[in-house]
Amino acid sequence: MIPAIGMVVGILVGLLFHPTVPVWMQPYLPIAVIAALDAVFGAVRAVLDGIFNDKVFVISFLSNVVVAAFIVFLGDQLGVGSQLSTGVVVVLGIRIFSNVASIRRHLFHA
């Protein structure tokens, strides 16, 4: 509950302060957001599976973000940045979909 409230607060803060993304961060932020969403959905699924662990969540969240940003960075260095970004988004999207499907089965049996 508290993390959910934290997210709402974060959204409000973002709406209030009109932050601009620093240039060096611009290629990585969208991918990092997708990776973090993947971690969040994975956490909800773990809660429903009964195997949730706070520490695991924090570590998976951070590692997801870092790895996603690193992959994009690597892609940019190799000249395949946009393709690799697309690949990462596809993979994370598939994971989010499967996690959501699992959550749905737990909550609605459907």
């Binding site: 974060g10 803060v13 969208p30 706070d54 969540f57």
Partner: peptide, 17 residues
């Protein structure tokens, strides 16, 4: 608490992006 901070950061990042 750490998870809350992370969620806060995530919301902030989403809106920013």
């Amino acid at each position: 608490a750490l998870a809350t901070v992370l969620a806060l950061l995530l919301g902030f990042a989403i809106v920013t992006q």
